[in-house]
Write a protein that binds this DNA or RNA. Structure first.
Lengths: 245, 245, 245, 245
DNA sequence: CATGAATGAGCCTTCATTCAT
DNA sequence: TATGAATGAAGGCTCATTCAT
């Protein structure tokens, strides 16, 4: 049993289901993502759908996990970037930006699941899996900040822990990406080049905290470019192509 | 008809309904906020509920407006603070912080209504009312930043408009407040005194942009204290009491 | 108690209620005629409405009775027309036509009450009152037909009773009036001057049965004119004015 | 899927639903025909009901169409009867009578749907389908009358068009059938053998208009018998059996 | 007496889940 | 194993009727 081709087939089908489900979640919200519509979107019936996922919550859970895992992978790859702490933190920022640009549906569905109390609908065990991914991302950032402290490149003001700084960077970035959901709104507010502004704000903030080397002391774009090229060559190309399509 | 005491009673009940509805929205999301549960939460029947609000959409609308108006009021009061631009921006930050501490459920429900397609569920007219409040808040911040430019106290780097800086400050603050929803999560991440960290991050960011007087040149706490005392004496006392209860 | 002016006031109010109710019944159907809307249409409240009519069914009943009584009155006045049986039957026809033209809302609401099972919603006693009016109309016609037989002016074919002939005339007339509800439909079917066609069909039918004097032996229009002038002078003037307004 | 026996089963159930729905419509009116009651009347749940009909409106539409189509079919078959115009008109009358006797519930529900604003509740497209059937019936009658004119067997009096005569015959017949709804009522009015009276009245009317051959010149019963035997052998047998059961 | 807020049964419709075929 | 018909618990909303003021 479990012939390999069969395994692959099941795997393929599962991805197809999640793809359809995610689109429905984005387009019509949680209650617009019905099992009927998912079944209509794939080439199988509702019964088959239930052989892959035990319940609608299970589908939701899989969606959440898929997003979180993908983001965590991006962060983990970025954290292994070769360079000093400040440069590695820059790579993390580049990774987040890439994730946001490359998988906007992931980012958005993730926000939906977190914003409404959708997480409370899934089992504790599954919820923990999701949380672990988030914690891992935070941990990677915190580790880099701690490295900078150890290397005496950063002296945080009294009361500010590495975890707190990670929280601030995270909040600034995700908060901005979240607010970018409505482009019309941005324009009305006179916001120009929001993504670049986020980048600059992070750097300015870190400079303000005296994290060496300051952005005036190193070439930000060179570092980011190297990060893209060395760690995310394939993904960068994808974004580039998509942007110029 | 229109006996004064009766008017008051109706007004009181309307607030009670919104209180219950907001809690349900926070606890169970939009689809968990059912008219049945709201009716069960107040001491009246579903029919009575429908004499106050024509539809579920109407309830959502009232919730959105209540939050936005309250926040807008805080911002408008803060914007009239006497002092230079940097100090007035500090007052805005203090206002947002106060709003968040005093009405955490307002803040959260506001986020929920803006996320997902909840805004699309209410009529265009009502939606506009809500948007106008948000735009007004942003406008107030942008105005202060522009004042600083006019007074040659701030020179924004090329490409960054006042609106963009307002967007960044807004994103940092609201993003952080949003992430504070789960205190356990914060603790696990080693975040200490998150609200103070937000304050400091904003000041550091503005310092980094060279907005004079720098936070090293003026007493931040003195300014914030004066803002609280002069503009929000009653609200400050409320928060203080609540914190020490 | 029961001061005369008060009696009149109550009477007036009752008529007002029925007027509003009948219009609602016609415009929005039985379930569109809500007690709320009736109360909104009169200058009194729902509570007062319930002091005049014990229930919605009671209102319906009053409407049905009002129509039936009005029609019965028309028939009774026509039956007293001076002339031979054929002429009196002509007067009955003229009365029905006048009723239809003068009170189209009565005719239509009557049909609505009969067509849907609305009569079953009212108490047996009330229903009987309504039925009695209908029976009385039929009886008047039957009596005239019997008079014609007695006077040897009419010899009905075997098996056809006076009641049966009355039923036929009644069916032809009311059926036609009913089908005239949708004028667009009539036009599409190429129906020209439907009311006149009904008159002619009735006369042709009675001629065909040999009811003397045949329509070729008397001046139909002269008879009808006299009926209008002698029995319904006021109503005729009303219709005339309405038609030429 | 689409197993033949399954198809048949679904078809059978759909008819069952309509049967129950029609009875409810007749007994309790449109608003008494609730989806709950229909579901209770069939042996399936409300959910299943909604898999056959998308809405209550859809059920009403199906009912209307079923009636109209059935009647139209009867009329079309009758119109092809071999004989002169007068004989074909007799066949139409026989067809209407048969339809009324064979499907009294169809006849009555049809009347209910046309009365009140029930037709406005169904979509324009569906309404058109219903109207087309009615127009077709009228057209068939009008065509026969025009044929009689062409053949110089009928000279309509000035101002009466073929469409108008069709309208009169239609009104007489349907009006009478409608009034026959309450048999007790008929008896009380001394109506004897109402259906035969309708037949006779139609013939007398046509005779009175001079439509040749007059009923005295041909054997009405022979023509009607031949129509039944040649066009509606099966239906006639059914009525016969039902009457003698 | 007049008022109109309060009630709650009932309506139409949706959808996650099950299970016979 | 795959299917999709069947289920029934909700959900949003209406409205006839009552009754405290």
């Amino acid at each position: 049993m479990a012939a390999p081709w069969k395994e692959r087939e099941l795997q393929r089908r599962e991805e197809e289901i999640l793809r359809v489900a995610r689109q429905l979640l984005l387009d019509h919200g949680y209650f617009g993502m019905t099992m009927d519509r998912i079944a209509a979107g794939i080439e199988y019936s509702k019964g088959t759908l239930y052989q892959h996922f035990a319940s609608k919550e299970d589908v939701l859970c899989a969606l959440a996990l898929e997003s979180e895992v993908k983001r965590k992978e991006f962060f983990e790859r970025a954290a292994q970037f070769s360079g000093n702490a400040r440069e590695r933190m820059t790579a993390i920022g580049a990774a987040y930006e890439l994730y946001f640009r490359l998988h906007p549906t992931y980012f958005r569905s993730e926000q939906m699941i977190h914003s409404q109390e959708l997480l409370t609908k899934i089992s504790q065990e599954r919820r923990d899996q999701v949380m672990v991914c988030g914690a891992r991302c935070h941990e990677l950032m915190t580790g880099i900040i701690a490295d900078a402290q150890t290397a005496r490149q950063l002296h945080l003001p009294g009361g500010m822990t590495p975890g707190t700084l990670a929280f601030i960077l995270w909040s600034l970035t995700s908060g901005a990406y979240l607010n970018m959901a409505d482009p019309g709104h941005l324009e009305q507010m006179g916001v120009v080049n929001a993504i670049e502004a986020v980048r600059m704000a992070c750097q300015t903030l870190l400079d303000g905290l005296g994290w060496r080397p300051l952005s005036s002391e190193h070439d930000y774009f060179a570092v980011a470019s190297r990060a893209y090229a060395e760690i995310f060559p394939k993904e960068t190309a994808e974004v580039f192509l998509a942007a110029n399509r």
